[in-house]
Design a protein around this nucleic acid. Structure first.
Lengths: 120, 120
DNA sequence: CAAATATACATAAGAAACTTATGTATTAAA
DNA sequence: TTTAATACATAAGTTTCTTATGTATATTTG
């Protein structure tokens, strides 16, 4: 079985919003830094979300109405918790379904099985 | 089951080279325009490779040594056939394996099954 | 047979989504 | 007490696409 330490940035491109929205929906609420840690831990470091990519994305998702924030003070430090709005909840479903469909199409195109991932 | 007419361009981003290399390896040799048609047909139009994206990609893959070309004249019209080099053949394997691995990680992250694609 | 469409290549400007670098500030660990 | 971790943010640069444009031949259709 093939194992790689870290995916090429090309591959991850376009999936950041889907990942963030899904995790926030599952976890209830999280803050930015927490998200980077969670994704790194869940993927054994294979997906590492950089802060330079994450924060602008979170801001965009808030602006589009898919996320909303609650500020909280931990000592003197501000922490911004994000959670999925009702609109965002629908967006998550769409995005996850689209991704699942896309994977099927790609598996057909690349001639790889769904479970085994057996390459040529 | 979820079906969409066309994937958002975000999702497809980063998979173009993998698709092109895989099809060329399977089919032996193809020319650019043929590739766009093949992908469109195989995916029922859900993935539509634009020529503006394809030709620069083919040129890059030739430059990197993964593809080589043969020019052929169909009447007065030039047709450039591409085929995978020995180096390219290894690249295909790597890329397909990486994609398969990536899909597994994403299915875990998004909490979707491998076959059913059952969303929340 | 003329006009529209399909075939077949190519490039260039602009947009989108990242990476890398930098900045600020607090808190915990060595 | 200095380093690392936590926690936010933005800005410049890169990659990779979209959209637009260009050229030319071949085929279909009205």
């Amino acid at each position: 079985m093939y194992i790689c330490l870290m995916y090429s940035s090309e591959l991850i491109k376009g999936t950041l919003k889907t990942i963030v929205l899904t995790l926030l929906k599952e976890q209830g609420r999280m803050y930015g830094y927490e998200l980077t840690q969670k994704v790194r831990d869940m993927t054994d470091g294979k997906i590492q979300i950089t802060e330079g990519a994450l924060y602008p994305t979170l801001h965009a998702l808030e602006k589009s109405g898919d996320l909303e924030t609650e500020k909280e003070f931990i000592g003197k430090r501000v922490r911004k918790y994000y959670k999925v709005t009702m609109q965002g909840s629908a967006t998550v479903k769409e995005r996850v379904n689209e991704f699942a469909d896309f994977v099927k199409t790609m598996q057909f195109l690349l001639d790889i099985g769904p479970e085994t991932g057996n390459a040529i």
